[in-house]
Design a protein around this nucleic acid. Structure first.
Lengths: 206, 206
DNA sequence: CAATGTGAAGAAATTCACAGCA
DNA sequence: TGCTGTGAATTTCTTCACATTG
């Protein structure tokens, strides 16, 4: 059961269901139809998505909000908290240090790194900025398991390799560059240029 | 030809091809095989993607870098420049005002808006922050065609509606909330929480 | 030859249609 | 009856295999 292949697009939808459920504290039961209205996905798809992980529903009633929330939380790996580091304390990096959304889901940024000496040892949003040379030590010391990369494009491959060398196997990359890393390193890439260009494509075409 | 249905996943790939080509100024010709190495997509897929828009290649030679770049630029709607506004000059908003990647592709942020009076009439990265009440006038005056939304989740639907009421039909949303807008309004949504949760899922599972 | 371009096959994701259960 | 859960059908996307062309 743990090994079953999950269609890739299921996961972001789970994340969205989970968010909606957090807004539904007043209800005890919710049907796939109601979730459909909230999320814009079809009710069939929602039920299908759940079947990859088990049987969460009650026929005739729907899903118990609390239970479903707990199940999704577990599936998404949000039942434990993550120590995270941020590498690259530029504009975007600083903004993310202050972003509440991560912490709320258990992603705790415990250290930041930058090579600019003027930033080092300073605090941003309560998080200390360290020199890159301390990366390995601090990863170990603070048990860091995930890295957010907000470094310039021209150094991101190199920085990613340093991160991987420190033992971190999960990278959240904001640089507009595809990383080439060992297959066991998990990477998510937010590429703002790609996204704005998709928008531009949509508008230009219609 | 203009009306042919384009598979949704083709577009972000085009954007990636386009970026790679910009790094290949020294070469005059590039093959789908070479593009494949750079992008990680298969050569077949790359050729297939291009066929949706015409015949760009030369058998035996590959693609002319300059021509292909120009074609992709046109397809993605980057051959003209876009006047863009940013709504919500918080941490993330400020970071995006200073982001060079948008301007390079012709997305010019010409105004920012915020309801916090302490920010109004100030300059951030050379861009003036206006009161929300001026939105409609400035959209008209500056011919704004796209909006970047970096407002808190609890107001983003409302703000998005204001934006749409001003006549803007392209929205780039960073708030962790699905917008419900008329179908003719094009929306792209960057949802950082969804992305970090995908990462957490990947790591938790493997 | 060295590459593109593309029908046809195959795989993946979604939706239909309905059986099954509280 | 109201809803879930799921085989089967369908649609969408990707890859294979190869004909085609400079």
């Amino acid at each position: 059961m743990e090994k079953q292949k999950i269609p890739t697009r299921v996961v972001p939808r789970l994340s969205r269901y989970y968010r909606i459920l957090r807004e539904f504290d007043d209800k005890s039961w919710i049907s796939s139809r109601e979730l459909s209205v909230e999320t814009g996905f079809t009710d069939t798809q929602i039920r299908r998505d759940f079947t990859y992980f088990g049987h969460f529903g009650n026929r005739g009633k729907g899903y118990n909000v609390e239970e479903l929330k707990k199940s999704l939380k577990k599936i998404l790996g949000l039942d434990k908290s993550w120590n995270v580091m941020l590498v690259g304390a530029g504009n975007l990096g600083k903004a993310l240090l202050g972003y509440k959304g991560f912490l709320e889901q258990g992603f705790k940024i415990v250290a930041a790194f930058d090579e600019d000496t003027s930033k080092i040892e300073k605090n941003i949003a309560g998080i200390t900025v360290y020199s890159m040379s301390k990366l390995v030590d601090i990863v170990k010391e603070k048990q860091i398991k995930m890295a957010i990369l907000t470094v310039p494009e021209n150094v991101c491959q190199e920085v990613a390799e340093q991160v991987v060398a420190s033992g971190v196997k999960a990278i959240f990359n904001f640089a507009p560059k595809q990383l080439k890393l060992p297959v066991d390193v998990k990477v998510r890439h937010i590429d703002m240029t790609v996204e704005i260009e998709r928008l531009s494509f949509m508008v230009s075409r219609q």
